[in-house]
Amino acid sequence: MELLVLIKPVPDPETRLRPNAAGTNLDTDGVKWVLTGYDESAVEQALLLKEAIPGSKVRAIAFGPAPRTEEILRSALALGCDAATWVEQPADTPTDPMRAAAALTVACQKTPFDLILVGKQALDDEAGLVGPALAERLGIADYGPVVDVRWDAAGRRFTFARAVEGGSDRVSAPTPLVVCLQQAWNDPRTAKLQNVLKARRIAIDKVTWAEVAAGIGSAAPGTHVTAFRLPPPRTGAKMIEYRTPDEAAQKLVRLLREEAKVLP
């Protein structure tokens, strides 16, 4: 089974967020870029499938600028992916999630696959567009957000649970297929020291920007971020002074109705 897992470098979740000087994006100075969240769960799922299906191979693919993108591909290799493809994004080349999906499609078309795994969304911009848009471009079905993907060898289908409001659907689907993974349900593994060292010696394949541009045309991305800001800081709660619990309840309900206007 040929498994592709698409990942994206995102700022370490503990990063203190700061807008850049122009207020148009995150200030990336000193930011540590990591493989985490939904993508980490997607890699873990890919590796679990690889272990369950004899003869399987996992290739990690990431689109983004150097060197952060190469670094997270190395993280994926250290975890047990067999190969990696870096889809080049030259610095200063504007992009958006739909553009990223198009670029990744070019890379996916260069390699055989049965299943493409992708995080339901990235932990930074939370767009949730890449997996479904990529599937459309490849002309195959996609399902998300899913957990617990298994291979039904007899039926030659993947089975999984797709989260919907109020519960989850059991779904089975034939290959080729895109699945968009939920995060933090499969306790992603930690790389072993030996594999971290070995991963540094694996050559990463590259899809150049020229190849990408040839595949997706030169039109500008359909959206661009004009501002990045922090929400106004919450200044702390208005504390309810009271003598009895009943008084606290009455005061709180009055505030919720008359000031916050969240109770009818």
Partner: peptide
């Protein structure tokens, strides 16, 4: 080196988690 940084990252992650 990048290799040393990745060793540090591994140890840091283990320490933290």
């Amino acid at each position: 080196t990048e290799e040393q940084r990745s060793l540090q990252d591994l140890a840091r992650k283990f320490a933290k988690t």
